[in-house]
């Protein structure tokens, strides 16, 4: 049966992982391939690499990262951050990424989603949405540029439209919950999963094993993503999977 995915997210700057794993003895905690291999052995179902390199001139280093990681680690790899065009997406896929996420550029030009889906298939187009609650408003506000720029878009509406345009998956981050470790924004997840039939990755707010299960059971997510929690060893992927299994959510056992 189809299992719920547990996904660590790694931030990459200039080809190096920042905030690398700090709790195990790894020769080089900044090396993307070494960390990918570590998380593969931990039972990660997929990996997300987010390129946070500020300058677009230096973005090509990300292509090398994807090349190296995909030559060593044979699980799906999603790459995001700074993807502006169909060509950007094509380069990442060719380098070995399974999926590519778009965020700011898709808000600026929603046709990008359609264009990429037609060329490469919906299955590799992930729409990343950073959302924040607004007082007195029924929908969350979409932010772009790493959460720095507010937009006119409502998150639920944008999620529905993104899926209609051809996004094959949604990666929804609650900016309110992110870093708080008080749980994912279940209401946000549920509002989206109720209306969209593409898979949904929950992001932002995980602090304990129950939060992951809640995002799936109550939020309708298909996958759960976390970063620091895994990197600092607060929780291991095996802990999350053991709890999910206990409460009856199917997971792929760690080999």
């Amino acid at each position: 049966m189809l299992t719920n995915r547990v996904i660590p997210c790694l931030d990459v700057d200039l080809g190096r992982v920042v905030k690398g794993v700090s709790f195990v003895d790894i020769r080089d905690a900044g090396d993307p391939a070494e960390l990918a291999d570590f998380y593969n052995s931990e039972g990660a179902d997929e990996l997300v690499f987010l390129d946070i390199t500020a300058s677009s001139d230096e973005r090509n280093t990300m292509v090398d990262v994807v090349e190296r990681v995909s030559a060593e680690v044979f699980i799906p790899l999603t790459v995001g951050g700074g993807i502006r065009s169909r060509d950007d997406m094509g380069r990442m896929l060719e380098a070995g990424a399974e999926k590519v996420s778009v965020n700011s550029a898709a808000v600026a030009d929603p046709a990008l989603i359609e264009d990429c889906a037609r060329e490469f298939g919906s299955q590799c187009v992930v729409l990343a949405i950073d959302a924040q609650r607004r007082n007195g408003e029924p929908d969350w506000q979409v932010f772009t540029h790493g959460g720095r720029r507010g937009t006119e878009f409502g998150a639920i509406k944008w999620a529905i439209r993104g899926a209609e345009l051809g996004a094959g998956e949604l990666l929804v981050t609650s900016m309110d919950a992110d870093g708080q470790q008080t749980g994912y924004d279940i209401e946000l997840l549920k509002s989206i999963s109720d209306q969209v039939s593409v898979p949904l990755i929950a992001s932002g707010g995980a602090g304990k094993v129950e939060h992951f299960a809640d995002a799936i059971k109550d939020g309708g997510a298909d996958a759960v993503l976390a970063a620091s929690l895994f990197h600092y060893g607060t929780l291991r992927i095996a802990d999350v999977k053991a709890h999910m299994d206990e409460v009856g959510l199917p997971v792929r056992p760690v080999d």
């Binding site: 998956e169 298909d222 792929r252």
Partner: peptide, 12 residues
């Protein structure tokens, strides 16, 4: 539950 499409992830 709603059938998710694409069929995406690890399945038996």
């Amino acid at each position: 539950t709603r059938l998710k499409v694409p069929h995406m992830g690890w399945n038996t």
